[in-house]
Design a binder for these strands. Structure first.
Lengths: 160, 160
DNA sequence: TCTCGATTGACAGCATACTTACAATATGGA
DNA sequence: TCCATATTGTAAGTATGCTGTCAATCGAGA
């Protein structure tokens, strides 16, 4: 591993940084980070989810997510309500303002996601995304916080 | 962008986290992070480089790199010497101990890099790496700290 | 019912990443 | 030579991302 440039780990780090830079640039009018955006989307999909389950649903670290939620609450995009059944957990809900933000920001997010892959030919974009999706899925257990979307939903009301 | 799971940005973030987790696991005997490793490798390749040029050579943020260098110096893997020509810059060199560490850690790093791609079929690994390399290169200017390997070397002694 | 083990949110501590700012120093042009 | 401008390292402030730990709470089994 003489030069670092050909190592997959190095390239994934670079791509992550590029993806974040593009996201932030496209969404700068909204002052929302990629992590905050993903959290909002998942809270909208699963209203009343708690922080631990949210961390499993988006595969983000539980400790980190705590401060992300704090910031989202400070910006009044979500609110935390005590759980009736379990005094330990706090349930997460989008506020009206959070729902509105999500509606407004989506075009910018889509533009960002498109820009990330834009330099490749359309066929190559498809190929890369297919392989990337596969690789993330197959390596799920290797990450510190594996994705547990299904399991997490088991414990919710799970109407849908 | 209803579900976050299909967004390239989300997938690159996940892969980066997976790659770091695998690196750390394989290299835990050495207590070295991926960023610290990349810095050491580049300092070995370019002895006497300064921090600003190093940041361009590996495309890491200049501010962040400051503390990375501090930690590497604290561990005695590198040393900083004042530049004879320029009182502002400090030149970076591997110590004997840093060079030894690099020699020892390389098998673990190679194992980590192989493990990252292992779940894919060999042909798919090649395809993914080719597309990823292309995409990083074509998006170079989009990142906050574009790679400037060539330019950076211009200003050095540049024996090789 | 009581107790032990697990879960939850919170916190401390470390390591990237990025922004802005600043003092010391260099450099090029008037 | 002098001065406006740029560069370098550093620092402060914010945001992930991870490791621990802890108290409060929960749940299951004796």
């Amino acid at each position: 591993m003489d030069a670092v440039y050909t190592a997959p780990g190095y390239l994934f780090r670079r791509m992550q940084q590029i993806a974040v830079a593009i996201f932030v640039e496209e969404c700068k009018a909204y002052d929302l980070t990629p992590v905050q955006y993903a959290s909002l989307v998942s809270i909208r999909t699963h209203p009343g989810i708690d922080a631990t389950r949210l961390s499993a649903v988006i595969a983000f670290d539980r400790s980190t997510l705590g401060s992300v939620i704090e910031r989202l609450e400070a910006k009044a995009y979500i609110e935390r309500k005590p759980s009736p059944g379990d005094k330990r957990t706090k349930l997460l809900y989008l506020t009206r303002s959070g729902a509105a933000l999500l509606r407004d920001i989506i075009p910018s997010v889509e533009r960002a996601q498109a820009r990330i892959l834009q330099p490749l030919k359309p066929a190559d974009r498809k190929t890369l995304m297919a392989l990337l999706t596969q690789l993330v899925d197959l390596n799920n257990e290797a990450s510190r916080v594996p994705l547990r979307a299904e399991d997490a939903l088991e414990h919710l009301g799970k109407s849908g």
